[in-house]
């Protein structure tokens, strides 16, 4: 992969600086937020992230992709990992040369099979077969270049890498 700043978008000076900053000695991530895993707090965390990405000069497509995959993954934490009641979640985002590294950690139930699900797209055959759900992991897999799940004692950790849209 070759890094260039040419073209229509994303990798502007400010973003380059943020990436350089993020790469320095593995320090603090670009964005970190602890919250309770509920729909409303998920929304607030994503809106805070969108503001921070905008201020760092991340382009619209990259930030909207990040918002989408994080919403899908956090919705899963709310619905499944914490099906018995809300608990704490930590979201971190690091801006790196090969994309945004997004990590979600929680202390809820483990993934059922111990691995990231790959359900594929649900069957769509209107008018009888019109799925109302089951799209989340498909969307995440479409947009990420790397996806890793770890269960460490009582802690789930999901890492998703979202490549910069300017590079392919």
């Amino acid at each position: 992969m070759v890094l260039t700043s040419a073209g229509s978008g994303g990798f502007t000076g400010r973003l380059r600086d943020a990436v350089a900053e993020g790469g320095r000695g593995g320090g603090e991530p670009f964005f970190r937020r602890h919250f309770t895993a509920t729909d409303i707090e998920t929304r607030a965390a994503l809106q805070a992230l969108m503001l921070a990405l905008d201020q760092a000069g991340v382009g619209d497509e990259d930030s909207s992709n990040a918002e989408l995959i994080l919403a899908e993954a956090l919705n899963n934490v709310v619905e499944h990992a914490y099906a018995d009641g809300a608990g704490p979640v930590e979201l971190t985002v690091s801006l790196q040369r090969n994309g945004m590294a997004c990590t979600i950690s929680d202390r809820g139930r483990p993934m059922p099979s111990g691995v990231v699900p790959s359900p594929g797209l649900p069957v769509i055959d209107p008018p009888d077969d019109l799925p109302e759900g089951g799209f989340g992991w498909h969307i995440i897999r479409c947009l990420t270049s790397e996806l890793a799940y770890q269960r460490d004692r009582d802690r789930n950790s999901l890492m998703m890498r979202l490549p910069w849209s300017d590079f392919d």
């Binding site: 919403a71 899908e72 919705n75 759900g133």
Partner: peptide, 30 residues
């Protein structure tokens, strides 16, 4: 911003309306 929960809600409305009264969409942002 619309996530898969929102998409599911749009699909649910389409199904509620049935085939005799199609739900169509307009003005989707990128």
């Amino acid at each position: 911003f619309l996530d898969s929960s929102g998409l599911g809600a749009v699909v649910a409305v389409m199904k509620l309306l049935g085939t005799s009264r199609p739900l169509e969409l307009a003005g989707l942002t990128p």
